[in-house]
Design a protein around this nucleic acid. Structure first.
Lengths: 112, 112
DNA sequence: TTAATATATGAACATATATTCATATATCAT
DNA sequence: ATGATATATGAATATATGTTCATATATTAA
């Protein structure tokens, strides 16, 4: 038995991925976007107008969310519709934190 | 019926608190600390030595975690022992994300 | 009180990040 | 092809944040 168990530490790979996910949801703008997309598709323009943000701002943030697979998208003409990548969000947050569900411990019920 | 439902947006208060909690766990150092404290008490010095960090660094980060009630503490002589504030972590993350529990969707099982 | 140990704090610095502006790219209709 | 619309991207800037160093505070023992 060692002084400190090996289980006291996380491997760098896990550490990085955990921090990335949390970082993604640590920004109010990205939270707004994820909340808006929790139960419906929206184009970039719709997101920008609904949230009162510049198109560029939304696009930049969507790239971050896309990279982390928190959102998925599909093209329709000149527009691109984004939506929450439920499958991956579920894997990440677990059932009690699924956006759009009614529960006490959910994703957006942190306050208080 | 309005164009966009009021439920599309989060109030500023909730938004701020959600972002704060995620921000707290978006830093690798703070994740390491929370992971270390998930099932035992540690003094500041023990944390610093186990994780190979400066005492000052640990103290600064503990203040952040303390402010958000992610850790609690008790004094014993000149030492102060910190531990995860399970009750509050539970409220925040829900049962499937309790550190120290064995599950598939937990707090520290994000990777892959 | 003084010395020793543990912890907290403030300033400085370097780095990361969110937003803005300008512009590029992509799709569709004509 | 051109023009119109939607989206993406790069550079610049301002702000936020993590770490370090030095020092302050607090507790205990002598």
């Amino acid at each position: 038995m060692k002084e400190s168990s090996k289980k006291d530490l996380l491997d760098e790979e896990t550490l990085f991925q955990v921090s990335q996910i949390f970082k993604a949801l640590s920004d109010p703008t990205r939270i707004k976007i994820m909340y808006l997309l929790r139960d419906k598709e929206c184009s970039v323009k719709q997101i920008a107008e609904t949230l009162g943000l510049l198109q560029s701002t939304v696009s930049h943030q969507l790239r971050t969310l896309k990279t982390l697979r928190l959102v998925k998208f599909r093209r329709e003409g000149t527009m691109i519709f984004y939506s929450a990548d439920d499958k991956h969000v579920y894997e990440i947050m677990g059932p009690s934190n699924m956006p759009g569900t009614n529960n006490q411990n959910g994703f957006f019920h942190f306050a208080r």
